[in-house]
Simulated scan of single mutants.
Amino acid sequence: MHLSKLVKKQSGFSLIELVIVIVILGLLAATAIPRFLNVTEDAEDASLDGVSGGLATAVGFVRAQWEVDGRNNNSVILDGTSVSLDTRFGFPTGTGANGTDVTAMNDNRCQQVFNAILQSPPRNVQYTEDARNQRYTVRFLDGVGGDATDLNGDTVTGIDLCVYHQVASLTLDQTTGVASPAPDLNVGKGITYNPGTGTVVSFTN
């Protein structure tokens, strides 16, 4: 008798109660997920701004060291690394002994700048390579940097532009991991570096 009364007291949730719980969980998810996505995007933007600021500071260090060296050399030593530069402007153009012309940049030299002057550069690959598990892609744009006046007062035209895209803002081919479409200034989020003016700018699309 006592046992039967105990069994009767044990009861589960009714169907209405379960539906109410599911509806409440759905409402919570509907409000929490967008906020989480916004937080993720804000974090990506903050990371982009941080890298952009670090790159701009490092470019300034290279130029300052070049000034200290008397503006005579086509390279400076930064943290033990030889950084090449165009003696007409004094901003980094790579790390090789050759190739200091701001109108003769390429993907490899833009990548060298990124990796050589940043103290802890984010993982990166050239834009034609598998970008999965990377943070940035690197690409140079031929002649997109415009014109600049060198130290002699001459105008140099057709300066190349280095572009560093945040991989999280790109669409990658599922098979190859290569960004598609090829990243340019109208795609994703990233940073531009002009080796003729030393200007570093972050951009978003």
Rank of each mutant, 00 (worst) to 15 (best):
Thr40Ile: 10
Glu41Ala: 15
Glu41Asp: 15
Glu41Thr: 13
Ala43Thr: 11
Glu44Pro: 01
Asp45Cys: 03
Ala46Thr: 13
Ser47Glu: 12
Leu48Lys: 04
Asp49Pro: 00
Asp49Trp: 09
Gly50Gln: 10
Gly53Lys: 09
Gly54Cys: 11
Ala58Cys: 07
Val59Leu: 12
Gly60Cys: 03
Gly60Lys: 01
Val62Tyr: 06
Ala64Asn: 11
Gln65Thr: 12
Gln65Asp: 13
Trp66Lys: 03
Val68Glu: 09
Asp69Leu: 13
Asn72His: 10
Asn72Glu: 15
Asn73Thr: 15
Asn73Glu: 13
Asn74Leu: 06
Asn74Pro: 03
Ser75Gly: 06
Ser75Cys: 04
Ile77Val: 14
Ile77Gly: 08
Leu78Pro: 00
Leu78Phe: 10
Asp79Arg: 15
Gly80Ala: 11
Thr81Trp: 05
Thr81Asn: 13
Ser82Ile: 13
Ser82Lys: 08
Val83Glu: 00
Ser84His: 02
Leu85Ser: 04
Leu85Arg: 00
Leu85Lys: 02
Asp86Pro: 00
Asp86Gln: 07
Thr87Glu: 08
Pro92Arg: 03
Pro92Asp: 06
Thr93Cys: 06
Thr93Leu: 08
Gly94Cys: 07
Gly94Lys: 00
Gly96Lys: 07
Gly99Ile: 04
Ala104Met: 05
Ala104Val: 07
Asn106Arg: 06
Asp107Leu: 03
Arg109Cys: 10
Cys110Phe: 12
Cys110Trp: 04
Gln111Ile: 07
Val113Cys: 06
Asn115Met: 14
Ala116Arg: 03
Ala116Asn: 10
Ile117His: 02
Leu118Tyr: 06
Arg123Gly: 08
Arg123Ile: 06
Val125Thr: 07
Tyr127Ser: 10
Tyr127Gly: 04
Thr128Arg: 08
Thr128Ser: 14
Ala131Lys: 00
Ala131Thr: 04
Asn133Val: 09
Gln134Leu: 04
Tyr136Pro: 01
Tyr136Glu: 00
Tyr136Ala: 08
Val138Lys: 00
Phe140Gln: 11
Leu141Asp: 10
Leu141Val: 12
Asp142Trp: 11
Asp142Ala: 13
Asp142His: 07
Asp142Glu: 15
Gly143Tyr: 06
Asp147Arg: 04
Ala148Gly: 03
Asp150Ser: 08
Leu151Ile: 13
Asn152Ile: 02
Thr155Phe: 03
Val156Lys: 14
Asp160Gln: 10
Asp160Met: 13
Leu161Ala: 05
Cys162Asp: 00
Gln166Val: 13
Gln166Tyr: 12
Gln166Asp: 10
Val167Thr: 09
Leu170Gln: 10
Thr171Asp: 14
Thr171Arg: 15
